[in-house]
Simulated scan of single mutants.
Amino acid sequence: MFDLIASPFLQDYLICRPGSAKGLKVPFHLYEELRQSEREPVPDWLRDSAWKQWGMVLPDRPVQDAVMVRQPSDYGYCRASYELNLGCNYDCEHCYLGLKKFSGLKWQKRKQLLRSMQRAGVLWLQLTGGEPLIDRQFKETYDYAFRLGMMLSISSNGSRLHDPRILNLLRARRPYRLTLSVYGASAKRYDAVTKRRGSFKLFEKGLTAAQAADLPISLNLIVTDTNADETEDMRAFARDRGLPHNVFSNMAPTIYGGVETVLTQSEEHLKTRKPFTGCNAGHTFFHADPHGLVSICKVGRDHQFSLVKEGTAGLRKLGGIADSLQLRTGGCSGCLFGQNGTCGTCRPLAKLYQESGAPLKNYCRHGGF
């Protein structure tokens, strides 16, 4: 198995190490040297760089055995997210997925989807759900994406991290990042949010196992009306564990346009959204749902198409879809906040809020934000 990944990245060329946030930017001629000399010994410049950057000694073997050299792509994508399954072992009332159905692609079509992502240039891939670790094909999917030369991140509730089969896989083929959601600092609050007795105990068990394995963990502290009184305790929990963390308190409607998730917010903990200045959704990254249907992102799911059926070539229309979805039309037409660059909500998200009938103040500065 390879030790490093050499890959184009937009207009640059990177050397990455699975499981590490550190990387190297190299000029084209050094990337091309690796690509054209895969049967030659690892060059001295890469040996020296690997030692300086990661303190690792590259083995004395051909480039093709030590480095996964990714081929250039004509499509210009660098990141993607993939919902393995919408199913979950929790039933959190704030979950934006709404109906959490267990369904998705069979194994051969999953492989086809991942190969299309690789051909599109995707270097960073987020595996999410639902809860990805309970997916029946998680281990096979993770392993296959890893062997395709992707830097993998996982978004999880951590309840299955204590499973030796999962933990051993992540030890051997380390993720770039493991992001765990936290729903409370006590069993009482945590279990109330997830609606599953014993979920806090499983989370602690999984987190302890992952830290013992020295996996790269970050925490998302989810604040709702149910656990708002433990916000500071959740921060203290993260600090005591020595883990980086972010606080999330603004809930979005469900992907089906349901308002029930918005109603779980803690009003006193809502944050003013930063001005939306645009993003590259659909241009340099995209999202795939459990059935391989591609959209510009997790929020903007209009005009989906099957990447499995259409292949990588289908991605050529995604940029046009993205541009059309970001237009401030309909309920946002004539908005001065949008015109002067101080609106805090992208158009696809605003559309979900509007369709759900959520209070205006949750997404529009005219409503008080």
Rank of each mutant, 00 (worst) to 15 (best):
A281D: 14
D233L: 14
T254G: 06
P253E: 07
M234Y: 05
G282Y: 11
F237A: 02
F237I: 01
N227L: 12
D233S: 08
M234G: 00
M251G: 00
A288D: 07
G282F: 08
K274P: 13
V308K: 03
H245S: 12
R316W: 03
S324N: 09
E267F: 14
M234V: 02
Q304Y: 07
E268H: 13
G258L: 02
V299Y: 15
E310C: 03
P275D: 08
D225Y: 11
T231R: 15
D229G: 11
N250V: 14
C279I: 03
N220M: 12
K309P: 00
S249V: 06
D323W: 13
Q304V: 04
G300F: 01
S306V: 02
S306P: 09
G278K: 08
D233V: 04
D229W: 05
D229F: 13
S324Q: 15
R235N: 02
F286T: 04
E260Y: 09
G300R: 02
M234A: 01
D240N: 14
A322S: 14
Q326C: 13
L221M: 05
L270W: 03
P290L: 00
I296F: 15
N246G: 10
L221N: 00
D302C: 09
I296W: 11
A236N: 13
E260D: 15
Y256E: 12
T272E: 09
P290W: 00
C279Q: 07
L315F: 01
F285T: 03
P290M: 07
G311W: 00
F248G: 11
Q304P: 10
T261N: 12
G258M: 05
A228R: 10
G330Q: 10
H283W: 10
L315D: 01
G311F: 01
T224S: 12
N227M: 09
L243V: 10
N220K: 12
D302L: 12
L293S: 10
T277C: 12
I296K: 08
D323F: 08
H245D: 05
L318H: 07
D323K: 09
R239Q: 15
H245G: 01
L263V: 08
Y256H: 09
D323T: 11
T264A: 06
V308F: 03
F285A: 02
H283R: 08
L325P: 10
H287F: 14
H269Q: 07
H303G: 10
P275L: 03
N227F: 13
F248Q: 05
D240A: 13
P275W: 00
K274Y: 15
A322V: 06
G314V: 03
T224I: 05
D225E: 13
A252Q: 15
N227E: 12
V294L: 03
V247F: 03
G300W: 04
A313S: 12
D240L: 14
G300L: 06
G278Y: 04
T224N: 00
N227C: 02
V223Y: 00
A281I: 05
F286A: 01
V308M: 08
H283D: 14
V294T: 12
V247C: 03
H287M: 04
A236W: 06
V223K: 00
Y256Q: 15
A228V: 06
A238D: 08
E232K: 06
A236V: 05
H287G: 04
T224L: 13
L243T: 09
S306F: 03
N250E: 11
D233R: 11
S266W: 05
A322W: 15
I222R: 06
A288G: 07
